[in-house]
Nucleic acid binder design. Structure first.
Length: 550
RNA sequence: GCGCUGGUAGCUCAGCUGGAUAGAGCAACAGGCUACGAACCUGUAGGUCCGGGGUUCGAAUCCCUGCCAGCGCGCCA
């Protein structure tokens, strides 16, 4: 980032001196091949086009003035209007100093400029334990939150509890029937019911606490069971998320929202704006006015609310809480719901641009290549908690975050469990542990690291592998920024893979403790320490630990 | 039928707000520990970026169209 910024500033200054504007589509690119130099700019090409001058002449002039800059070691013309720029070793060496001076904040950015963002994620119905699909949403959401905060946003996190509606009624009924069954009564099972083991556990526990429970009338029994079951399941969800290092600051209840009259308030707004009408005894929302293919029901003819109705009220409430931007993380199977929600937001007089949905694709859970089917209602699934105990939070988080969220993900328990190369988290963690091992060994041998701000020692680091590592470190802020702006935490894991690669290459090519020169050894120790800092910082954005040893 | 998402190396995937010669890991092949951690490194091989049009100095990336795959189209949540 520093390199890109520096080159941009330089070019702008030289162009201004020549009375030329900064072209609108200027692109400064990181190199793909060594021969391209450190950075390439297409400024001359674009300017030539815009100002009607020869790109080659412009490039010549720009390259000439760039060569006069202390930080630039070469600037060459490549192709019509491209300039390849190589920075001097001194320029890259400064990167170490920047990491060393601010190890906690290196790479952080101000693109967020304090904007208030709310991220709502997981929000699974409390009808059963979290499974691995929820885990992916949790990992993506949590990492995004860490990322946005690091990029300068003010972020609040929230879990929306769907504690009203039919599914919850069904949960209460399922537990209630188990209670009666356990009490020796004959029960008839409805078609849709929750048949997981955990339902029986809850029923058993309730019966143990109150043996007279089964004698209650159905209505009361279902209510009691529902309240108890939901609380117990919710407690389990909170524990699972905590074990997965995921936190929600606010747990928002749908029931509370409805009881507070928020739905009626939202209806009034829609009505005042002319977007709702009555038909067939139901209340409708004219979503077709916003491009939806049919209008949607808000209040059913039996007087009860649709899920959509309370969701509209919920998002209205979120906007009214003063957020500049809302991010929802949903399962990809809800994608059809997005246009409807956007329509609602527009109808409420809010800006749909300030609302983003990240769709997280389903996780295909495998065990040694064999697919495991998952269904909450049928009670067959691998819970997130089970996966945690089998493979741990680090490996599963990294796996979830190594692919963009809207692509399918094969999660093979056997593979993730293995400490094999199929499992890149260890490659990155190993790089960090390796650095720590060398620093430890240095201490044992009485070799002391240079002070964090000792610029003169960095000048000794001019090997190719060293400069490449510094250049990679310099990119960190850039990666953070683009990952935050694109709401794409997986960029971080890819960056970490590359960084670890540079570190391992360097490590294999050059001795640190055995460099044969005390000053050089100390300088290299400084480089390792700063590289370790960057890796640890990146891992922390994924919520993955950076172990000192493995 | 309509819509959303995807189609990139043998496999799993990055890259997609247009930039130069399209990348990584795994698998394959050939090498490297008497050196700070070999959970590592070096090298080789591997491509019609699904097909076809278009936009322009330039397209994996944007537009149109066809094919394939997954998902969604309730007064369910």
């Amino acid at each position: 980032m520093r390199a890109k910024t520096h080159l941009t500033v330089l070019l702008q200054r030289h162009l201004a001196a020549m009375n030329l504007p900064w072209p609108a589509k200027a692109a400064i690119e990181a190199p793909r091949e060594k021969s391209f130099g450190d950075l390439a700019a297409n400024v001359a090409l674009l300017l030539g086009k815009e100002a009607g001058k020869s790109p080659r002449d412009l490039a010549e002039v720009l390259a000439l003035s760039l060569r006069n800059d202390r930080a630039v070691s070469s600037a060459t013309i490549a192709g019509p209007g491209f300039i390849n720029v190589t920075f001097s070793p001194a320029f890259w060496q400064e990167t170490i100093g920047q990491v060393e001076e601010a190890p906690e904040t290196f790479g952080s950015s101000h693109v967020g400029s304090g904007k208030k963002v709310q991220v709502e994620y997981v929000s699974a119905n409390p009808t059963g334990p979290l499974h691995i699909g929820h885990g992916r949403g949790a990992a993506v959401g949590d990492s995004l939150v860490r990322l946005l905060r690091f990029a300068g946003y003010t972020v609040r996190t929230e879990y929306y509890i769907n504690d009203a509606g039919r599914q919850m009624r069904l949960l209460g009924l399922s537990v209630w029937l188990r209670v009666r069954e356990l009490a020796g009564q004959n029960v008839a099972w409805p078609e849709d019911w929750y048949r997981g083991e955990y339902i029986i556990d809850i029923a058993k526990k309730m019966l143990a606490e109150d043996p007279a429970l089964a004698a209650l009338p159905d209505e009361q029994g279902v209510d009691r069971c529902f309240e108890h079951a939901m609380q117990s399941i919710l407690d389990g969800i909170k524990k699972d998320l905590a074990d997965f290092r995921v936190e929600h600051e606010v747990w928002f209840s749908e029931r509370g929202l409805v009881a507070g009259g928020a739905v009626e308030k939202a209806f009034e707004r829609l009505h005042a704006a002319g977007y709702s009408y009555e038909r067939d005894g139901a209340l409708w929302f004219r979503t077709t006015a916003f491009g939806d293919d049919k209008d949607r029901v808000l209040r059913k003819s039996d007087g009860s609310l649709t899920y959509f109705a309370s969701d509209i009220a919920y998002h209205n409430d979120k906007f009214n809480r003063g957020f500049d931007h809302l991010v929802d993380i949903w399962g990809a199977d809800h994608h059809g719901y997005v246009p409807r929600m956007r329509a609602a937001i527009a109808a409420l007089g809010k800006d749909p641009q300030q609302f983003d949905v990240i769709l997280v694709q389903l996780v295909n859970l495998l065990k040694g290549g064999e697919q495991i089917a998952m269904s909450t209602r049928a009670g067959q699934f691998e819970t997130l908690a089970d996966v945690m105990t089998e493979v741990g939070a680090d490996a599963s988080r990294f796996m979830f975050l190594s692919r963009k969220s809207d692509s399918h993900l094969d999660f093979d328990l056997e593979l993730v469990k293995q400490r094999s190369l199929d499992n890149p988290v260890y490659y990155v963690q190993y790089a960090h542990a390796r650095i720590c091992a060398v620093l430890r060994k240095a201490g044992e041998r009485g070799v002391f690291l240079p002070p964090r701000t000792d610029e003169s020692s960095w000048a000794l680091l001019a090997q190719d592998a060293e400069l490449k590592l510094m250049r990679q470190m310099d990119r960190f802020e850039d990666v953070v920024e683009s990952a935050a702006l694109n709401l794409a935490p997986h960029h971080i894991s890819h960056y970490l893979m590359e960084t670890a690669g540079e570190l391992h290459s360097y490590y294999a090519a050059h001795q640190v403790l055995g460099a044969g020169d005390d000053a050089l050894t100390r300088a290299r120790l400084g480089l390792l320490r700063s590289a370790g800092t960057v890796i640890a910082r990146g891992l922390s954005l994924l919520g993955v630990t950076a172990p000192d040893s493995m």
